[in-house]
């Protein structure tokens, strides 16, 4: 299948891209790496009149350290994020999730910001973004604004990015020294998770002193498992406390039923995977 005809523009600066977006409005669609958008266009699920390709804007690519955050440019390919030593050192949960995202070819082409802006509830990066409290930097006519991960994901394939706005970069608060684990349950390695749990924990002197847990494909948006986080902090880093906390992974979820499993099955999976993810993140093995 071939996409329906469209006009194409590839601006070389963010300002040009914003101007093109203002000019073409809702007739336009932004192209990042295209690994989700191109299949959508080819299956004719969407037929925009304009494609605005961000691939020629160098300033949207790259990873840097800035104070207490690691800043990832929206157009940075997954493969670059996955191999970056700064990300591995300060946001290991991102490295762990990127490694399991799709396949090698898709990771070469797909982008960190593109995947998050696409907001597929089964996307691999939403859970880690929520677990780590990522901050999204969005450019519009009025300049830049920041949106917390808790407010970024609005609904199925819908984010806080306005129609005339572009995601510029994602700031990941440093979690240096935290353990992390991305537990992805999937039939075929390169597919979207049936359910996934992103967990990062800080253990000091045998006690959990910090926890971030995000759930993927357990509702119309990635979910932050606050109940699990609350249940953990101050508890001993033991199999018992992880099992007890994992029971709260179902709170606030509304998982789908599809060919891969029922909602009930996913509610079960979320608890099992949370227990495993916490144990592995704390260095207790596979749980």
């Amino acid at each position: 299948m071939i996409p329906a005809p469209f006009d194409y523009v590839a601006p070389t600066s963010l300002d040009e891209a914003l101007a093109a977006l203002r000019e073409h409005g809702d007739e336009a669609k932004i192209l990042a790496g295209g690994q989700s958008l191109l299949p959508v266009l080819r299956m004719r699920l969407n037929a925009p009149e304009w494609i605005i390709d961000l691939g020629r804007i160098d300033s949207l690519r790259g990873i840097r350290e800035e104070g207490d955050a690691i800043v990832i440019g929206a157009m940075t390919p997954h493969s670059v994020v996955g191999n970056d030593p700064l990300v591995a050192q300060h946001a290991g949960l991102i490295s762990a999730a990127v490694e399991r995202l799709a396949d090698v070819q898709v990771r070469h082409r797909g982008t960190f910001g593109g995947a998050l802006a696409h907001a597929d509830p089964a996307g691999d990066l939403g859970g880690p973004a929520r677990a780590l409290g990522a901050v999204f930097v969005i450019a519009g006519a009025g300049g830049m604004r920041q949106v917390d991960a808790d407010d970024f994901f609005v609904d199925l394939f819908e984010t806080a990015i306005g129609e005339d706005e572009i995601l510029v970069e994602v700031r990941i608060p440093k979690h240096t020294g935290w353990g992390s684990r991305y537990e992805k349950f999937v039939r075929v390695e390169h597919q979207w998770p049936i359910c996934a749990v992103a967990a990062t924990v800080r253990v000091e002197g045998g006690t959990v002193t910090g926890a971030g847990v995000g759930l993927t494909n357990m509702g119309s948006t990635p979910i932050r498992a606050r109940g699990v986080e609350e249940a953990l902090v101050g508890q001993p880093a033991s199999a018992e406390s992880f099992a007890a906390a994992a029971g709260r992974a179902v709170e606030g979820t509304n998982p789908p039923t599809d060919l891969n499993g029922s909602a009930e099955y996913r509610l079960h999976l979320a608890q099992v995977l949370t227990r495993r993810a916490l144990a592995a993140a704390a260095g207790l093995g596979e749980g």
């Binding site: 194409y8 299949p39 070819q105 898709v106 070469h108």
Partner: peptide, 8 residues
């Protein structure tokens, strides 16, 4: 490496 059916 890329999947050339998924690149314009």
């Amino acid at each position: 490496s890329v999947k050339s059916c998924n690149v314009l």
